[in-house]
Amino acid sequence: MPTSAHTYTPPAHGSDWESIAPAKAGFDAARLEAAIAFAKAQESTWPRSLHYEDGRYVGLVEWNESGPWSEIAGPVRERGGPAGLILKGGRLVAEWGDTRRTDMTFSIAKSYIAVLAGLAVADGLIRDLDEPVAASVDGPWFEGAHNGAITWRHLLQQSSEWGGEIFGKSDQVDHNRQIGPGADNSRKGQRRSLHPPGSFYEYNDVRVNLLAYCLLRRFRRPLPEVLRERIMDPIGASHDWEWQGYRNSYVEIDGKRMQSVPGGGHWGGGLFIGARDHARLGLLVAQGGVWAGRELLSPRWIEQMLTSSPTLANYGFLWWLNRGPEPKPGVPSTAVYALGAGVNAIWIDPAQDLVAVLRWIDKTALDGFVERMLAARI
């Protein structure tokens, strides 16, 4: 992976971010502009209010969700328009739209949770990824033979098969869930038999919310506070971002009231953040966890985080990978990305020292943008 020794590190928010001409960054300017025009033209079909005219929240429509666990429990805010940026070696090659606007970012929050898990490992709060979570997190969540066998690795790879309810949401709500273009969610929410922990992948927001709660229990501090202190402030992010939980996700730890935060905006809440701040996090990952010569995140953790899971080869620890039996053609196997509904994405290729952030591009067009951006390389 590239390191800060040969990658420009942008100054803190509020200072000028150095730019570089497309040709000097290794792009054909006309082709790159065509890729950006494509992204602008392929705006998400989601209404800007994030509610349809009949009042339905876009997420519930997107995932064909109704029933006892579909209540919106966190804040929802109107979104902005298409926006994005491209970095080469940390410098701005291109930027469009309002990249400072703090919009909802949905499941990109999951990838931030993976970063926080890396800090917990570094601090010794998680002794062993393969240790049952029950060994360090008490309460009813991991009682019984099935839930008691779940490890931190299982939660990070979305293969835990945890069964239960937390903050008013049951794991059943995401049974049989599919994601991505062409997803068939006709059976979503229909209960199925659980597999042994670690043997079956399922994209399940309730289980990720459980992981965030478990990390809160280990840090004994609100996760947004830990993220700001350990990652976002050191990489010079703005102070505009926030991470909101549910109105019923407050818990008491050491006599203090804290809010557990979710891994997305499925039921509202989640990470509200701008594209520029996302780009800083992407650049930190691309640089192997090093920022301006300072190691903020273990390079070993990033390697683990971006390693294929045994139950889904194109998934690591809450990050997507271009690996497995069906990699995206024309895209390097070193490419990884954080993905949120809407669509929002942080796309990284450490081997080429490239970072791209996309906000509110149609879900069918993300691959098309990446293909056009890579085709613009000279």
Rank of each mutant, 00 (worst) to 15 (best):
Q287W: 00
D54K: 07
A120G: 06
V61A: 12
E71K: 09
G268W: 01
V173R: 08
K363M: 13
T7N: 13
L215C: 05
R207K: 12
I231E: 01
H195C: 14
S308Y: 06
A286T: 07
D130F: 06
E229Q: 03
A34V: 02
I113G: 00
L284P: 00
R192D: 01
G80Y: 10
R48L: 14
G255Q: 11
D28I: 01
F272I: 01
V331M: 14
V93F: 08
R31T: 04
V61G: 10
W360D: 14
G97M: 00
G270F: 03
W141Q: 10
L358C: 04
I150S: 01
H266K: 10
T9R: 11
N314S: 04
L306F: 06
G340N: 07
G74S: 05
S260V: 14
L297E: 02
K24R: 14
Q158M: 15
I113V: 15
A29L: 03
D54H: 01
W141G: 00
L85W: 04
N344F: 07
L339Y: 05
A37T: 05
P196V: 11
G330I: 12
L374T: 10
Y201L: 09
K110C: 10
E371C: 09
A35L: 01
G268T: 00
V290Q: 08
L194N: 03
L155K: 02
I20T: 06
R247H: 13
R153M: 07
V331Q: 06
A83N: 10
R276A: 00
G59Q: 14
D138K: 13
W69D: 15
H6F: 12
E229M: 08
L156N: 00
N248R: 05
H6P: 06
G90C: 02
I20P: 02
K328S: 12
T45I: 13
